[in-house]
Design a protein around this nucleic acid. Structure first.
Lengths: 342, 342
DNA sequence: TTTAGCAGTCAACGGCCACGAGTGCTAACA
DNA sequence: TGTTAGCACTCGTGGCCGTTGACTGCTAAA
């Protein structure tokens, strides 16, 4: 617990590096002897022990009890990610596989998201989570009114960018489909291409019915929050098998996090193009103290962006996770800008 | 293990009934002494033991080891559900609360589904799962083509019944929005109101582009399977806290079942209006041997139906679950027929 | 600065025993 | 014939203890 955060010697760095790697692989504390035998630092176990003691003093390692090996602390993981990991990239063949999969998927956002979560889960060995791209300042492209039953009408609202939302409205008195189409056309002529603010200030003489519809449209535009179900998940069950989740409280925290992804948004301050790593809840989420997340925002900044990432135990293959998240996020960004770019 | 399935005496029935109730409440094997003290059958523990032995011989009870109390077998639960439970109903005040909640929700299928899953989870104390109503034999109501970018067009397909699906298609050469709208109108005039079979046999002279679109429409109509994300879940974390899920393999089976609800469809043979109870996987799902499900189909038979239900440990409050599932299914059926009825 | 050697620590494991909850059986009883 | 009291028996649970072995920390020599 020395307060001085002084530079580590090269050997100390390799030791930390090796401990992180083998601990991630084995989930068991790493002993000095194992390190000596396993890897190419040609010193005795005693020397390694000395350095381990230093690393522990600095707060990068702990051991669960006196006669146990060492394991990384959150601070240790942080150092590893920022100083030792370097720029990791997915192996080229893996990249090609992924790119190929995206290529042969059907041209549909929902398919891409599902694919992205599957790829992330498999490739980063964690629980993957992908949210739909949210339009920043939604603009109407077109609306449509469809009669379904005597007093009921289906309103379909297509936003600039292709997001579609629907709502049912009830009529005071029945209307013909013709009349509905006419109203829709009139509204489209006036309001297509505008955002909510512009719609409010644009005067127009509307029938009562038309202004009711417009009211509903504004409501739908205001509901910025992503519909809960526009979230794709994958790999949760595999991650729950990891030994850290035999304790049901840890498992619960993870499942909760996956079920309520809105909190991800709170975490995620990153810009499109960068990957953010949150280790052990980083103080703010005590329940997630044994979980880490690797997150990125994807899409087109200022227009439509979504979130995607991987959750797992702090003992996570950060290299794989970071490179996979970055690669998939870039891929999704390209897709979004190809499709929805104006 | 006597093969004769003879009638139980009234007292044996009460004993089975009581054991199921207290076992559901406590999750611990029930002893003869506890039964004698707890409930109003005025006989000694020895008599109860005799009857317990008989019930065990018939296969309705087991005990985990010699000196432990009794607990119900799957067959015991089955007997309980079918012979002892009778017609259970949700308490009126609970019904009112639920009805009220549905009343003040917005008129949107997705909201209702979310609400239904929340209500089920809370009311039946289990993990709830609600799938969107699927159109039986989908018919086109209207299609729409919207240009998003040079070579990309968004196809929106509205089915009879209000389900909306969308897909992006790429053009060989750019087209104006006007030309797209015209094509859509032409296709609508010819094909609106038809199902896939009728579309295939209805001749029409179409441009290349129009028949491409039609091809895509047929594909979308053929994808009968519900989009994975049109499934609402709730209450999973609460159920995972139950003691039977401290074993990670049981927990995994449950999480799997919740993530891959398509297998529910296989199970579900019930008609709209009846509730189906599957206890302990009922032989077919070995992984779910310690789970039960209470399921129902809702909607309008032959037109649009969805699935909804509750998963939990076999040690489940069947009375609550069955009545809640039935009530919510009826509610949802009413909503579907109100909205989408033709 | 590194290393060999050694003492010290502590979790894990297995054996042992006492406890107590519950049953099954038998014999007496209504 | 059905019910009950009593008692022997079973078996899981939990505490206790000694052994083992995997590590570390320290010290003194290279």
């Amino acid at each position: 617990m020395s307060e001085e955060n002084q530079e580590l010697t090269p050997r100390q760095q390799s030791i930390l590096n090796l401990i992180v790697h083998t601990y991630v692989a084995t989930a068991a504390p790493v002993s000095s002897k194992a390190l000596m035998e396993g890897a190419g630092l040609n010193v005795s176990s005693a020397t390694i022990r000395n350095d381990m003691a230093v690393l522990e003093e600095y707060g990068y390692l702990t051991h669960p009890h006196t006669s146990a090996g060492r394991m990384p602390t959150d601070k240790g993981y942080r150092y590893f990610v920022e100083r030792l990991l370097g720029d990791v990239e997915l192996p080229t063949d893996e990249k090609n596989t992924i790119r190929h999969q995206f290529h042969q998927a059907k041209l549909e956002m929902s398919q891409w998201m599902q694919l992205a979560s599957a790829v992330l889960a498999r490739s980063a060995r964690g629980a993957a989570l992908v949210t739909a791209p949210q339009i920043g300042q939604p603009r109407i492209r077109q609306l449509q009114l469809i009669s379904t039953q005597a007093h009921l009408v289906l309103l379909i609202l297509v936003f600039q960018g292709g997001t579609v939302r629907q709502r049912i409205l009830t009529l005071k008195e029945p209307m013909e489909q013709n009349a509905l189409s006419q109203a829709a056309t009139r509204l489209n002529n006036v309001y297509a291409g505008l955002d909510a603010a512009a719609i409010r200030t644009r005067p127009a003489d509307l029938t009562d019915f038309e202004s009711d519809v417009l009211q509903l449209v504004l409501e739908l535009m205001a509901d910025g929050a992503p519909p809960m179900h526009e979230v794709y998940r994958d790999g949760l069950t595999e991650v729950l098998q990891q030994p850290e989740f035999i304790s049901q409280s840890e498992a619960r925290a993870l499942v909760n996090a996956m079920e309520e992804p809105s909190f991800l948004m709170d975490v995620l301050s990153a810009r499109v193009g960068t990957v953010q790593v949150v280790i052990g809840g980083e103080g703010r989420w005590r329940e997630l103290s044994s979980c880490s997340m690797v997150l990125a925002r994807y899409g087109v900044e200022g227009f439509a962006t979504g979130t995607l990432g991987v959750l797992g135990p702090t003992r996570m293959p950060y290299g794989r996770a970071i490179s996979a998240v970055r690669y998939v996020a870039d891929l999704m960004s390209d897709l979004v800008s190809d499709l929805y770019g104006d």
